[in-house]
Write a protein that binds this DNA or RNA. Structure first.
Lengths: 189, 189
DNA sequence: TGGCTTTGGCTAATTCCGTTAGCTAAAAGC
DNA sequence: GCTTTTAGCTAACGGAATTAGCCAAAGCCA
């Protein structure tokens, strides 16, 4: 019985990949173990259980999304940053539906839960998307919530098949992002 | 052993209520049976299983949301309809988080799945919210998707605690709805 | 009223999944 | 090379969904 060379990171990564393939809700310890060529109880040497695994996948997702948006908006501002960041976010959710779901389901446990750091980074990425718009500081929180709501709602509806069979979904997304851009440009009050 | 007087409708309603209380993901046949003063296998005389139960709760939710929005927008148009419908939707999601989750998770089974009718009614309610805005017919689908995305995203983030401890969430929601209203008013192209 | 049929409960048993306990061999350290 | 730690494994438990099969309550009809 040679060892499989697993650790928390590789188990999490494999779990994330499997969740993307079969759906986060269908992810099970048994399936993941089989995928890794190992028996289910062995996974408990690396993660504390299914809840811990889901949490870790969620942290991975948050981190990856923050990175994707951050990279997309690097060196851009205004509409360019908004469009690039929005596209990065949507693409991530479409390409990694399982992780995306895990990321949204994850709730920070303690005060030093690494999830908090990941969420903070993601927030920084969201803010970066708004660089270049002259926003009234009092309104910034509302704008941020608008952005998150709209992009998360769109990605979530699209990923779960909420839009009638994909007619013009790309067009809709472009339209939506432009709508927000124009609104932000003309927002006074 | 007197009978409990259950049927598919009452089981579904009780399941929906329980899901709202403890969360849709924690809903189980055993808990629901206990709540109804019955043993778990007895539920199978009324619903085909947990998947069927979830599906029925989803249909119930879609129908109730359509009704709530429809009633809120009755006799209104333009911004009044938008604000009233958006409030109705948000309120529903907050007061019935379990059902709301079930409604979003439900996928139509066959061509004559009653879920389809419920979804159609909900779409009609969405459209009613836009009555009074002179929308380019080519853009209407995009506007609808913007509305759904934003409201669903907001409701979903708020219901799952996605917004940092409820500071100004009401204000944000009002701001977001106004943002959309103003955008729709000035949309040309 | 009385008997027949249908229906909606029940218990018992199966299966599947997550999880824990305890064993053992592989790796790592001295 | 010997000891210690670690990462697999098998066996077993508990909980949840589900199915089979039994039986009494309700409904129906002469």
């Amino acid at each position: 019985m040679p060892r499989a060379g697993l650790d928390a990171g590789s188990v999490t990564a494999a779990g994330a990949a499997l969740a993307d393939e079969i759906g986060f809700d269908r992810l099970s310890m048994g399936l993941l173990a089989e995928r890794l060529g190992v028996k289910a109880p062995s996974l408990y040497k690396h993660v504390a259980g299914q809840a811990d695994l889901s949490h870790r996948i969620g942290i991975l997702a948050m981190t990856e999304i923050a990175d994707a948006i951050g990279e997309a908006t690097r060196g851009r501002a205004g509409r360019d940053a908004l469009v690039a960041g929005a596209d990065a976010m949507r693409t991530y959710a479409l390409e990694h539906p399982g992780r995306y779901t895990a990321g949204n389901a994850a709730r920070p446990g303690g005060p030093d839960d690494p999830l908090r750091a990941a969420v903070d980074r993601l927030f920084a990425s969201w803010s970066a998307m708004l660089r270049g718009y002259r926003l009234d500081p009092d309104q910034e929180i509302h704008v941020l919530r608008l952005l998150r709501s709209t992009l998360h709602g769109f990605a979530s509806l699209e990923a779960t098949g909420g839009f009638r069979i994909g007619i013009d979904v790309d067009d809709s997304f472009t339209w939506v992002v432009r709508f927000i851009d124009q609104g932000l440009r003309t927002t006074r009050q």
